[in-house]
Design a protein around this nucleic acid. Structure first.
Lengths: 228, 228
DNA sequence: CTGGATCCCTCACGATACTG
DNA sequence: CAGTATCGTGAGGGATCCAG
C-alpha cells in the first residue's frame, strides 16, 4: 500500500538496556531467538514452535530481526528450495541474556498447567542454562534425541554442554522420546529405568547412557517448586 | 467497574524463559526494574525516569510486579508520608538479566539521537555492567554524584563496583554534574580536566578523584561505535 | 506444500484529564 | 504527590487467502 514509514516504537533513551529492548523487547522476539539458539529453522518450524503467534507477526518479527542484523535468512540450494532463518554472530551474543532469563524464571516453573505447551526446543535450550558440571566432571559423550519428528544433539565434554538441532555423528546412544517425558525425567518424576520400562523412552546404544544423561542434567528435589 | 478477571496474556509454555517473560516481558517492565536496581523510588521518580510511560501504565506495572513478588511497596514513616517501591530479593535476582542486556545492547549505542533522553539512573546502573576491575586493581574509594537534583553513591573496592541512589558517607569527592556530561566523560569525548575547566563538573574534595573514576569506568576508544 | 500477505476484531498502550 | 478514569490509536492474535 503506502511506503512503510513505520516509525518503530522506541524507548528513546540513550541506554544500553533500552537499546537492547528496542530491538528484542517486543512480544515473541526473545522466544524466536530462543528457538534459533538450538539451530537454524524454517518458517514453519518457528511457527509450530511458538503456539499462539500469528503468522503475520512472525513474518514481521523476522523482518525486524534481520534488519537489525540479529538473524539472517539463507536460501537452501536447489532440491530443498527452502529458506532458513539462523542467528548471526550478533544474535548468538544473546545467549547470555536468554540464559539469565532462564535461570531467573526457573523458580516459577511449577507443575505445568493444562494449557502449557511442552516443546522440545525450550527443553534443549534450557539444558545449557542449568547444566552443572560438578555432577559429571569426567563425562564426555554425545547423545541423539528423536523428539516429535525432530533430532537433537546433546554433547557433554570438559564440564560443558552443547545442544543443537540436527543429527549427531557417532552418539553413544539414541533416544526416541517425547518432550513431556524429557521434562518429567528432569523433574525426577520418572526414573530412567521406569521411563524405559514403560516404553516412554526407546533407547538404542549404550544402555547406561540415559541414566548418566539424567544424572548430569536433572534438577535436584530442592530445586523443584512445590506443586502449584 | 467489574471484577478484575484480568486473564493476563501468557505465552503458555512450560519454559523458564517464557515464564520470565510472562512476568517481566511486557513493555516498560524491565526498565522499571532497571531504575529500581539503583535504589527504591517513589512513584513520581519512576515516572520522570521513564519518559513516555503513561501514568496508568506505570501504576498497572507496579501492581503486577508487586503481585509477582518482584517489588514491594513500603510506606515511609510519619513525616515523609510517602510510599516507595523497592525490589524484593526476587527482584534483585534480575540484575544478571539486566546486565546481560546491557552488555549486548552496548554495541548499538552510537551518537545519541536528539530524541534520546540521557538519564542518571541508567548511567549508574550501566556502570556495573561495564566496570573493568583490571583498570583499577587497587582502587578503593567512594564518590558522591549530584545529578539533576538526585544524589548517587559509587563505591569501588576489591575490584568491584557498587552504585546506588542516596548519600554516601565520607566520599573522597563530591561531583555536581549533569547526566549528559557523565556520558560524555565515559565516551571520552571530554577529559576530566576539560570537564572541570569548562565548569561542566563541579568537584569538591580530592582533586584527582574524577580522573581516577573516569579511568576506571570510561570506555576505550575501540569500544565506542563510529558516529551514527 | 512452504512462505508468507490480508482482513478484521480485540485489547494493550499512550496521552490527557481528573481526584483524594 | 499518587494515583484513577477516560478514550483514541495501533499492535497483537486468529482466520483465511495467495504466490511460487
Amino acid at each position: 500500500m503506502n511506503i512503510k514509514t513505520q516509525k518503530k516504537r522506541s524507548y528513546d533513551q540513550w541506554c544500553a538496556i533500552a537499546c537492547s529492548l528496542d530491538i528484542i523487547g517486543e512480544r515473541w522476539t526473545m522466544l524466536i531467538v530462543r528457538d534459533l539458539l538450538v539451530g537454524s529453522k524454517r518458517y514453519k518450524d518457528l511457527l509450530t514452535g511458538l503456539p499462539g503467534i500469528g503468522t503475520n507477526l512472525l513474518a514481521q518479527r523476522l523482518r525486524e530481526l534481520e534488519g537489525q542484523g540479529v538473524i539472517e535468512r539463507t536460501a537452501l540450494p536447489a532440491p530443498a528450495s527452502a529458506t532458513v532463518y539462523g542467528l548471526t554472530e550478533r544474535g548468538q551474543g544473546l545467549e547470555p541474556v536468554l540464559s539469565a532469563l532462564g535461570r531467573w524464571g526457573f523458580q516459577f516453573l511449577r507443575k505445568p498447567k493444562s494449557t502449557d505447551a511442552m516443546l522440545p526446543d525450550p527443553f534443549f535450550v534450557s539444558l545449557r542454562a542449568s547444566f552443572r558440571a560438578e555432577r559429571a566432571p569426567d563425562l564426555r559423550e554425545r547423545y541423539a534425541f528423536r523428539v516429535e519428528g525432530r533430532v537433537y544433539e546433546v554433547a557433554i565434554a570438559d564440564g560443558k554442554i552443547t545442544t543443537r538441532d540436527g543429527d549427531p555423528t557417532d552418539p553413544v546412544a539414541t533416544f526416541t522420546v517425547d518432550a513431556k517425558t524429557l521434562f518429567a525425567l528432569r523433574r525426577r518424576e520418572l526414573t530412567p529405568k521406569q521411563a524405559i520400562a514403560r516404553g516412554k523412552v526407546k533407547a538404542e546404544g549404550d544402555p547406561g547412557a540415559l541414566e548418566r544423561f539424567v544424572e548430569a542434567t536433572a534438577w535436584s528435589k530442592e530445586m523443584i517448586a512445590p506443586t502449584q
